[in-house]
Amino acid sequence: MLEAKKLVKYYTMKEKSGWFARKKQQIKAVNGLDLTIKRGEIVGLLGVNGAGKTTTIKMLSTLLAPTSGTLSIDGIDALQQPEAIKRRINMIAGGERMLYWRLSARENLMYFGRLYGLRGSALKNQCDELIKKVGLAESADRPVERYSKGMKQRLQIARGLINDPDYLFLDEPTLGLDAPVARQLRGMVKDLAKKKNKGILLTSHYLEEVEELCDHVYIIEKGHLLLHDTPTRIIQTIVKDRILLVVMDRLTQEDWTWLRQELDNRGIHTQKNETDEGTQLDMTAPFDLTAQFIALTHQRNFHLLRLESKKPNLEDAIIRLAEERELL
C-alpha cells in the first residue's frame, strides 16, 4: 500500500522585479494532502489546473521532496530510501516528451531498462514483451520521431512498465489522443490494475475516463483535499438533482394547467417548449421523479413519445462543485 500523510509542498518563487532585484514569493502547491493507493486499485486525482496534481505525482515518484509529511510504499519510507522506492514505482506523463526521439522504441526501452539494472536476456525479453503488449512490434526499430502521437504514448506506457513497477502514476496519459487510441489505453490501464495487481494513480482532464476507471477519486483544490470517495458517491452527494426529459403529444391549455399544478405540488421544477414533435418538458427535482410523472400521465392518458431520464455524471459533479466553491 502506498500511504502519503499530510504531504505539503511549498515552492519559493523568485520573480524578476527589475534588472537585479528579485521578489521572493511562497507558493503552496500542496497543502496537507492524505492519500492512499492499494495494490490492484485505480485511484483518480482530480482538480482544476494548478490544483497541485503534478506536484503530488512528482512527490509520490520521489522526484520532488515534500516540504513536510510522510510517504511510505509497502512499509518502506520513501524519504529515507528513495532508491528502494524507485525500483517499485514508475511514472507516465502524457504528451510526447520523456523519450529519445532519435532512438527506436526498442532502443529507448533497452536504455531505460539498463538504468534499472536489467541486463542480458532478461532485459531483452522484457523489452520484447512490452513492445508486443503496447502493439508496437511492427515499428519497434523505427526512430521515435517518426511515430504518431498515439504510438509515442504507447511507448511511454511501455517505458513506464520497464521495471515492472508495483505502483504506477499516470499524469494525463490520454492527453490529445484520438478516441479509439484513448479507449485502448484505458483498457490497458484497467488490466494493469485488475489483472496485474498494480496500484495506479491517474490524473486526467477527461472525466468520463476517471468515472469509468477509478475505484476512488481524490478531488483537490489549491493543494487541499476537497473530497475523497467513489465516483458514484461523489456524484450522489454533489449533484442531487435528477433531470427528466419528456416529449408528448401536444398538450391542451387545460391539460397543461392541470399538469403544472400537480408538478408544482410535488416540488418538481418544469420548463415547457413547443417543438415540431409535440410538447417537450424538462423537469428537475432533487429525487428520481420518473415514477411519479408516469403515474400522472396515466391519470389523463397522455401519449408519451419519448422519455429520457438523465443521470448526472462526474463532470456535472465537478462543474457543480467548482460553481459552489466559486460562490464561497
Binding site: 524507485k86 511514472m91 520523456m98 517505458r159
Partner: peptide, 18 residues
C-alpha cells in the same frame, strides 16, 4: 527539455556513474 533527464532521475541508477 525533452524530459528524459527526469526519467533518468526516476530510475535507481547511480547518478554520478551516469
Amino acid at each position: 527539455e525533452q524530459g528524459t533527464l527526469e526519467i533518468i532521475l526516476l530510475t535507481p541508477a547511480p547518478r554520478t556513474l551516469v
